[in-house]
């Protein structure tokens, strides 16, 4: 029996590999290869109008220019990453709280699965228009002479327009939360729906309060969904430059913005170097997140 199983397993392994092959090839061609190119280009030299294929660390050293001189202050790149990380943390916390609340409501308060489905679909409505349009539609609302300021002044709550509504940290966070909460809702909802209801009944029977049940039963079981949602939110915010640009009035630096400026100036190697740095930092964050929860095991 045991000796028979080995070739069968090997056979299985080969067919499994064959099945995975197309996806593997797609990944190799459209992900691994471009990534290798980006890494290679980041070590090349350049001038005003061309990339020169000779090895140099210039793109990296210039990216970290002044970092030693300015200690203990932060140089541009560190400041930019610190600011991007701050936005990331704020957006993550807000989308998590809102997303978890929405998912919790859908999973435990909406009884009929038909309504669960309908309401979950309602959450997707903002996605029927493009990302950029959803963002831009905030501008007439939040502007100095926008609807919100107009309303506040008509109600005599304010005698002058509120300036920080638009082109500010606030508007950037607002737009991100608007755009990204859904990415939290879906995986968390998925996790919550898979929780065995008898566990909650057991907790209730054992005398746990609502808060204790939430904290010790529901939340730990929702972890995989939270981590997956967090990965979406963190990677999107870390790499974004459009939302920062439009909602921040192009004034707020972000890791993605550095890359964009270098690309616009035709300086591909430093753009590539910054992409590599961004990728490395994002991977570290994801590694930390997956350390907290082993997604593979939980799924």
């Amino acid at each position: 029996m045991i000796t028979d199983a080995a070739p069968a397993r090997r056979h299985l392994a080969i067919s499994a590999r064959l099945q995975a092959l197309p996806l593997g090839l797609v990944f190799a061609a459209f992900f691994v290869l471009p990534l290798v190119l980006v890494v290679v280009v980041s070590f090349w030299d350049y001038n005003d109008y061309q990339i020169i294929p000779s090895f140099t660390l210039r793109s990296y050293t210039e990216s970290f220019e002044g970092c030693l001189d300015e200690l203990p202050g932060l140089c541009t790149i560190f400041r930019t990453y610190a600011s991007t990380a701050r936005f990331c943390a704020i957006v993550w916390a807000l989308t998590l709280v809102i997303g978890f609340t929405v998912a919790y409501f859908l999973a435990f308060h909406v009884r009929s699965s038909l309504w669960q489905m309908v309401l979950a679909l309602v959450c997707t409505i903002p996605f029927w228009t493009s990302n950029v349009i959803r963002m831009i539609s905030w501008i007439p609302l939040l502007g100095r002479n926008g609807l919100v300021n107009g309303g506040l002044q008509t109600l005599h709550l304010m005698d002058r327009p509120v300036e920080w509504l638009l082109y500010s940290d606030f508007s950037v966070v607002l737009a991100f939360v608007h755009l990204l909460t859904f990415f939290m809702v879906v995986p968390i909802l998925n996790s919550l729906l898979r929780i065995d209801r008898s566990l909650i009944e057991a907790a209730y029977d054992a005398g746990a309060s609502g808060r204790q049940t939430l904290w010790t039963v529901v939340l730990p079981l929702a972890k995989p969904g939270i981590v997956i949602g967090s990965i979406f939110v963190v990677t999107i915010v870390m790499g974004d430059f459009v939302t920062f640009g439009v909602m921040g009035g192009q004034q707020i630096a972000s890791a993605g913005k550095i890359i964009e400026t270098r690309l616009a100036a035709l300086q591909f190697p430093p753009a590539a170097a910054n992409a590599v740095i961004l990728l490395a930092i994002t991977l570290i964050i994801i590694r930390v997140l997956t350390r907290i929860v082993d997604i593979r095991r939980e799924l």
Binding site: D48, E62, E65, T76, R79, T80, S83, Q250, Q251, A253, K257, I258, T261, R262, A265, Q267
Partner: peptide
């Protein structure tokens, strides 16, 4: 204008945007 020190200028401009 595109200056002789264009590359340096773009880096400094980036710092300004990031400031």
């Amino acid at each position: 204008s595109v200056m002789d020190e264009n590359d340096y200028m773009v880096r400094k401009w980036n710092e300004f945007i990031a400031a």
